[in-house]
């Protein structure tokens, strides 16, 4: 019995090694994308920004960049019609949601890579659709993913319409440039930028780098105070409001024509 078990285990290991070996051999040239800047400081006057991506890539038919953040769980209200009135009818929990998902491509994904290559690289809306889970007490309608994508796109944290410029450089090499928009709503954190190159529908190169978004100055101080010293922050908010209100009252009271 033990011998049979050992034999089966060995066969499984050989099969796994063969499968992963096949994948790693097709993934290919390692690329080093360069991000400028690689850190975004979110200060008081921050209003979104753009990061430039440049890379020296092997000659290819197309390239895809994905900027993605850690997974999260969010809760949403679903609206529905009740007696002709649009109301919140259910609460939907959405699991395994990337906080940010920005996809840039040199052409449409269908033209750049095969469905199989997209699945292996784990890119595009189909991949997101497979990954994200919707949980609701009431029956799901099937439109959840599209509605969710619309919400995140409107919010600026998802964007799948960014272009990439690919230009021929020295023989067998190409120069990749792209400008990724970082909306003001993108939360602070560490982001992973993945770069894929495809030829004849298959992946021929891959690279990865990181982007950091962090609060600085007054924005950082206030966010820290609000979360770490909530009671003091609440009292400060009230004191500031009262003070401004009364000071404005005194200023206006002293103006000519105040009637006093």
């Amino acid at each position: 019995m033990l011998r049979i078990f050992r034999f089966v285990s060995l066969m499984c290991m050989l099969l796994a090694a063969h499968t992963f070996g096949a994948d790693t051999t097709s993934v290919d040239t390692l690329i080093r994308p360069i991000l400028t800047p690689d850190t975004i400081d979110v200060g008081t006057f921050y209003n979104g920004s753009r990061v430039q991506v440049t890379a020296d890539v092997p000659e290819c038919d197309g390239a895809v960049l994905v900027l993605e953040a850690g997974r999260d769980e969010i809760k949403l209200n679903r609206k529905g019609r009740v007696a002709g009135i649009w109301l919140n009818v259910a609460q939907v929990t959405v699991e395994n949601v990337p906080k940010v998902y920005i996809l840039a491509a040199s052409d449409s994904l269908e033209n750049i890579c095969s469905p199989d290559a997209r699945r292996k690289a784990q890119i595009g809306p189909e991949y997101l659709r497979d990954q994200i889970r919707f949980i609701c007490d009431k029956p799901l309608t099937g439109t959840e993913f599209d509605e969710f994508l619309k919400l995140k796109t409107d919010n600026g944290t998802y964007n799948m319409n960014v272009g990439i410029d690919l230009a021929s450089a020295e023989p067998g090499r190409m120069k990749l440039t792209a400008a990724l928009p970082i909306a003001p709503t993108v939360p602070p954190g560490t982001y992973k930028l993945l770069l894929y190159c495809f030829k004849d529908g298959d992946q021929i190169g891959r690279g990865e780098t990181g982007l950091t978004v962090k609060r600085v100055g007054l924005a950082r101080m206030m966010a820290n105070l609000a979360h770490d010293h909530a009671a003091e922050y609440g009292l400060l908010a009230i004191a500031v409001a009262m003070m401004v209100g009364i000071v404005m009252g005194v200023i206006f009271d002293s103006l000519p024509g105040s009637g006093h």
Binding site: M222, A226, A230, A231, Y233, A237, V244
Partner: peptide, 24 residues
């Protein structure tokens, strides 16, 4: 204001400050 700041951390003082300069 106090309850929201304490339990939900949802008071944005900077937002309130600009609104209240106008509203006062």
């Amino acid at each position: 204001t106090f309850m929201q700041a304490y339990y939900n951390h949802t008071v944005d003082l900077l937002l309130a400050l600009f609104l209240l300069l106008g509203s006062a």
